[in-house]
Amino acid sequence: MKKLFRAGLVLFNLLLIAKLSIAAKVDTVETYSDAMHKKIKAVVIRPNDYDKLSAMPVVYLLHGFGGKYSDWPNNVPAIQELADNYHMMVVCADGNVSSWYLDSPVLSDWKYETYVGTELVAWIDNHYKTLKSRTGRAITGLSMGGHGALYLAFKHQDTFGAAGSTSGGVDIRPFPNNWKMAEKLGTYAEHPEYWEKNTVINMVNLLTPGHLSLIIDCGTEDFFYKVNCNLHDLLMLRNIPHDFYVRPGAHNWPYWQNSIKYQLLYFHDYFEAQLKAGAKK
Rank of each mutant, 00 (worst) to 15 (best):
N178V: 09
E190Q: 15
W179I: 13
K180E: 07
D158K: 08
T166M: 15
E183Y: 03
A162K: 12
G168D: 06
N178S: 15
M181P: 01
A189V: 15
I172Q: 00
F160C: 14
G164E: 03
W179Y: 12
Y188F: 14
F175M: 11
D171C: 10
S165R: 05
K180M: 11
T187V: 04
F160S: 11
F160Q: 09
S165M: 11
S167M: 06
A163S: 12
S167V: 04
E193F: 07
T187D: 00
F160P: 02
R173I: 15
A182F: 05
W179A: 15
W179Q: 14
A162P: 05
P174S: 09
Y188S: 00
A182E: 10
Q157Y: 01
I172N: 06
G168A: 10
E193A: 09
Q157C: 02
A189K: 07
E190F: 04
G161Y: 02
A162F: 03
D158L: 03
P174A: 11
D171G: 13
A189P: 00
R173P: 01
K180Y: 05
T187L: 06
F175S: 13
L185N: 04
T159G: 01
M181D: 10
Y188R: 12
P174Q: 13
S165L: 06
H191P: 03
A163D: 01
H191R: 04
S165N: 10
N177V: 05
T159V: 15
G164H: 07
F160K: 08
K180F: 08
E190T: 12
N177Y: 11
V170Q: 05
N178A: 09
T159Q: 07
P176T: 09
A189Q: 14
T159K: 09
T166S: 14
P176A: 11
E193Q: 12
D158C: 11
T166D: 03
A182D: 05
Y188W: 07
M181Y: 04
E193H: 07
M181V: 14
K184C: 10
P192M: 07
R173C: 15
A189N: 02
N178C: 12
I172E: 00
M181A: 15
I172V: 10
W179G: 13
T159R: 04
E193W: 00
G169N: 14
G169L: 03
E183S: 10
S167I: 11
G169K: 05
Q157L: 07
S165H: 03
E183L: 04
V170P: 00
E190V: 11
W179E: 07
P176F: 06
V170R: 00
D171Y: 08
K184E: 11
S165E: 06
T166R: 01
A189S: 12
F175A: 13
L185D: 09
T159Y: 01
E183F: 01
L185I: 10
G161P: 06
D158H: 06
N177E: 09
S167R: 06
G169H: 09
T159D: 01
P192I: 08
T166P: 00
E190A: 13
F160T: 08
G161D: 04
A162G: 12
